[in-house]
Design a protein around this nucleic acid. Structure first.
Length: 313
DNA sequence: ATGTCATCCTGCAGGC
DNA sequence: TGCCTGCAGGATGACA
């Protein structure tokens, strides 16, 4: 499942290939992949045609292009935003290199680009992803919208999403405080994109494992230091994944496959139920928590703080 | 305000 | 062999 590192890998790939390109044609192959427009797919196409993708930006798992009449315009008129959901992918085809194939059965939309001449396909097997054309609005904190843009603007539908774990403008102290609020289990808070964004089910389990925090520990029961350590663990695991994600894809095939390949070998908790914890050897546990499959080490990750009353033992 | 739950959808794994 | 059921997942909106 594409989480922050995968979406960032896609953003970088797209940024290299399609920045500045003009949108010449828009073909929506499945109407439901376009969200929230009264005029539906026709309005989506009409709004975009003739404009240019001036910059590729990302906050958490939300990806967007600033769209403007001219390339590199710092007064974009719209955002072309995308969420990959569970299975969204972008593929770029260069007719001059390998020709443009017939659309894949899972292709939901195809954009014909000019200058450079490319075809940009949006594929989505499970159809939880979407494309959207919408206005850009000021960021609530006045900082840059996200990775890839200096402008203090985000698509309207992203305005309520918190800064992501790798955002240099993330306020670590405020985020740690937000993480400790409420009665929900800490894993559910990690997955709440309005607190700190970009974390999905896989990296939530990995970060909790690294920080030795039980996924069901009530958020308010975390100490300030363990909340901070958890946030740092989240950043570390995402950076590690990003380092590996960057190496395993080639320029014209912008890959978003969360489970096949690169980082899955480095996972310590997710998908490893029954296998020994690499830290302590105890078998890893799996259960459904808040409707999400969750993996942890019952020995290393205690439900309550491991602070001992009898330090001598 | 806060938290929980069903919902969208498709492909695959498992059971019989 | 083939059908059927259930599950996986992110975000949202309805509801308690």
């Amino acid at each position: 499942m594409p989480e922050l590192p995968e979406v960032e890998t896609v953003r970088r790939g797209l940024s290299t290939l399609v920045t500045g390109a003009r949108i010449d044609a828009v073909e929506v192959r499945r109407d439901s992949c376009v969200r929230l427009l009264p005029g539906g797919a026709a309005e989506f196409a009409a709004e975009l045609t003739g404009l240019r993708l001036s910059r590729l930006a990302r906050r958490g798992k939300f990806l967007w292009a600033e769209v403007a009449p001219r390339a590199g315009d710092d007064a974009p008129v719209l955002a072309l935003s995308a969420h990959l959901g569970m299975s969204g992918q972008f593929r770029v085809h260069d007719a001059a290199v390998a020709g443009v194939p017939d659309p894949h059965p899972h292709c939901r939309a195809r954009l014909g680009l000019g200058d450079p001449d490319l075809t940009l396909d949006f594929l989505d097997q499970r159809t939880f992803g979407y494309l959207h054309v919408e206005p850009l609005v000021p960021t609530p904190d006045g900082g840059p919208g996200g990775e890839g843009t200096p402008l203090p603007l985000v698509p309207a539908s992203v305005a309520h999403i918190g800064r992501d774990a790798l955002d240099p403008a993330l306020d670590l102290a405020a985020a740690s405080r937000a993480l400790r609020r409420g009665t929900r289990g800490i894993k559910q808070v990690l997955l709440d994109q309005t607190v700190v964004s970009g974390i999905g089910n896989i990296y939530a389990d990995e970060a909790l494992w690294r920080a030795r925090v039980h996924p069901e520990r009530p958020a308010h029961a975390l100490t300030a230091s363990s909340a901070r350590a958890l946030l740092v663990a989240t950043q570390d695991v995402m950076r590690d994944a990003l380092d590996q994600g960057g190496t395993s894809f080639d320029a014209l095939y912008v890959n978003v496959n969360g489970e096949s390949g690169y980082f899955s070998r480095a996972l310590e908790a997710y998908g490893r139920a029954g296998e020994p914890c690499s830290r302590c050897g105890a078998p890893l546990t799996r259960a459904s928590i808040g409707g999400r499959s969750t993996h942890w080490c019952a020995r290393c990750q205690r439900r309550w703080s491991a602070r001992r009353a009898n330090p001598g033992s």
